[in-house]
Design a protein around this nucleic acid. Structure first.
Lengths: 113, 113
DNA sequence: ATCTCATATATGAATATCATGATATGACAA
DNA sequence: TTGTCATATCATGATATTCATATATGAGAT
């Protein structure tokens, strides 16, 4: 018997195209990293932040922070504003509510550490 | 010079404990998988679903589906209801709104395929 | 031109995740 | 007890991700 053969006859769930969830899952996957969430928390709290101030706050190397910022920028989650030698990142308006909600609910997940 | 030395003096972002974002990021990370989002989409649409009906709908092997269901159940995202030889999974009430929002916004991400 | 400083990129090792075939479990029917 | 069927777990190879070190870029000051 081959995979495609249907088994139970409970209910007919119509064909689902997994591929169409590629975009949103890549976006959500980006949010599923504690370092990136921590960066987002700081940016959310202060409105914007540059890598050089995130570096001592998070206690991780600058390239690590820059790489995470870049990924979030690439997918449209962050905006970038360059001033003098600094590059400030802020949350894109379209995702501000989402990030707010996440930060609000963050504490309810702390017990799972 | 050591990593811990502070560099720029733009603004003092207070120390961030990355570890406290462990729980929420693991939760979001679970959502960041296209197969799991597809499963959630089907469950969300039909209210509940068992593995044997998801299998032909998604066109992937049963162990793959069961494994994803189990992960989402383990973290509390899904509820389980066993009837006869079937095991029906549904979205936990506390996350129903979140999943709804994701499904509503799903199409805006389709272009990123 | 050289130094400084913030940022960005390259590379790679360790780790995590994914999907699958094989196998196990467990309830029920014959 | 044997067969069936839905579900669950295991083992594994392939792939992806993470984070660090080393290095590069580029603007501004000296």
């Amino acid at each position: 018997m081959i995979d495609t053969e249907e088994s139970c006859e409970i209910k007919k769930i119509e064909r689902v195209d997994i591929g169409k969830f590629d975009g949103i899952s890549r976006f959500l996957n980006l949010l599923g990293n504690r370092t990136r969430i921590a960066i987002l928390a700081a940016i959310s709290k202060y409105g914007e932040a540059c890598a050089c101030e995130l570096q001592p706050a998070l206690g991780i190397p600058q390239p690590t922070i820059t790489t995470h910022l870049r990924k979030m920028y690439d997918i449209g989650l962050l905006k970038q504003r360059e001033v003098w030698k600094y590059s400030f990142y802020s949350i894109s308006p379209q995702y501000a509510n989402l990030v707010d909600d996440i930060m609000k609910n963050q504490e309810s997940f702390e017990s799972r550490r």
